[in-house]
Design a protein around this nucleic acid. Structure first.
Lengths: 221, 221
DNA sequence: ATTTTGCAGATTGTTGACATTCTTCAGATG
DNA sequence: CATCTGAAGAATGTCAACAATCTGCAAAAT
């Protein structure tokens, strides 16, 4: 218990904590894409000096959440529809790989956990409980990518998902598309449960490709 | 011409230049994987203070070239064979996607350029000119990934290749494997020239998968 | 009226100093 | 002899001040 707390502090320096906090602020919508981020304002807000703030911003820059323009400052990254589409294509390739890997190595406990997430989403859809759906949806995707047994894959996938949150997510979850989306989840998880890599690959790829289509169609309206 | 020079300085701040330089030092082999990187030593070497150094290191940390341990310092990342294998798997998926995309949209000029790189490698193989081969090899891969029309894909792919350079590349290019490797290049480029996405996908995936096999086999000896 | 110039305030870039933590090693202790 | 203690030195973490650059606006010029 104490060892855990010590371990927490061991790999969580101030700049890392600040980075996490700034990320939360950005993805939470407090800053809008294109907004300027003021170093001094952040330093004042967190009660620290600008040094750690700047270090956190360099890291966020590499993550793709902000754009840095020398002598001008940092700005919340603004994604065009074309860029979002690009990210979806890469994400589809990585997610398909994750599904394929997991289909090979998934344990019974893994399958059970995935099924529980899908079941929770089924219930959430029936109750029109969007908040729960979104949380379980992310949990399912994260579980698949994390349990696939490739840390590099997980890192890059989650980075892409983070970037996509910069693309206006308003009205992203429509009632009917949510139902269709969870049908795809069923197919993904059953392909993994069947230990069928090719089927899992196709199901996972299709899921992201369909999500991209839905988002792009929504964008044009 | 002047505008170009100004533009160069506009998006190349000191920390960015320092980051590039530290990266060069790491990948150049001056520091070995696992080595500690001293901030003050770098500051002294470049004649600047530790602030910009630290910002550059936070960026390199996200790139995956160094490991940061709070209150202990930064170390050149040490890749295990398993980690290198993981990276190869992700790289294969991304490279296959790049080949697929390029097969669809490649111009005649693109195809000509790719063929010239392959031809240069054929000549280099005949002359046992490894240095030229390595340079042309990287140029071909970069051209494919860059011309695929997906900047996100290119960024992530190149990041993976950079990380792989941390995995001892000594004896990586064996005379016979180089010849076989360029045979695969022929198939990749011809698939792109034929505008056959499925064939290009397979050829590109196979190329990286084979490279992984070669490296892993070499590792066990 | 539009554009240009120049100044004042604000913001970013960089530095050197100080605080904290870690490493090392000599000496004490069992 | 092995282990523990702790102090000295070095390295990292943080800060506040200064320098350089940019932004915004008002005044002047065309």
């Amino acid at each position: 218990m104490l060892a855990q707390a010590i371990e927490m502090l061991r790999d969580r320096s101030l700049p890392m904590l600040i980075e996490q906090e700034i990320e939360r602020v950005i993805l939470g919508g407090e800053y809008a894409p294109g907004d300027k981020i003021n170093e001094q304002a952040l330093a004042l807000r967190f009660g620290i000096s600008r040094g750690p703030i700047r270090e956190a911003l360099r890291s966020l820059d590499r993550t793709g959440l902000i754009d840095t323009i020398p002598n001008r400052g940092v700005f919340v990254r603004r994604l065009t529809a074309a860029q979002a589409a690009e990210i979806y294509d890469v994400r589809a390739a990585l997610f398909a790989l994750a599904g394929q890997c997991l289909a090979i190595r998934a344990s019974a406990a893994d399958v059970e956990r995935l099924r529980s997430h899908v079941a929770a989403m089924d219930e959430a859809v029936a109750r029109d409980d969007f908040e729960t759906y979104i949380a379980e949806n992310f949990a399912l995707h994260e579980a698949i990518v994390t349990r696939a047994g490739n840390a590099t894959l997980a890192t890059h996938y989650l980075a892409l998902v983070k970037q996509l949150r910069l693309y206006r997510t308003r009205n992203l979850m429509l009632a009917d598309s949510v139902h269709a989306s969870n049908e795809e989840h069923h197919e993904m998880v059953e392909a993994i449960a069947a230990h069928d890599p090719a089927r899992a690959y196709a199901a996972h790829f299709n899921h992201v490709a369909t999500a991209k289509t839905r988002l792009m169609a929504n964008h044009l309206t």
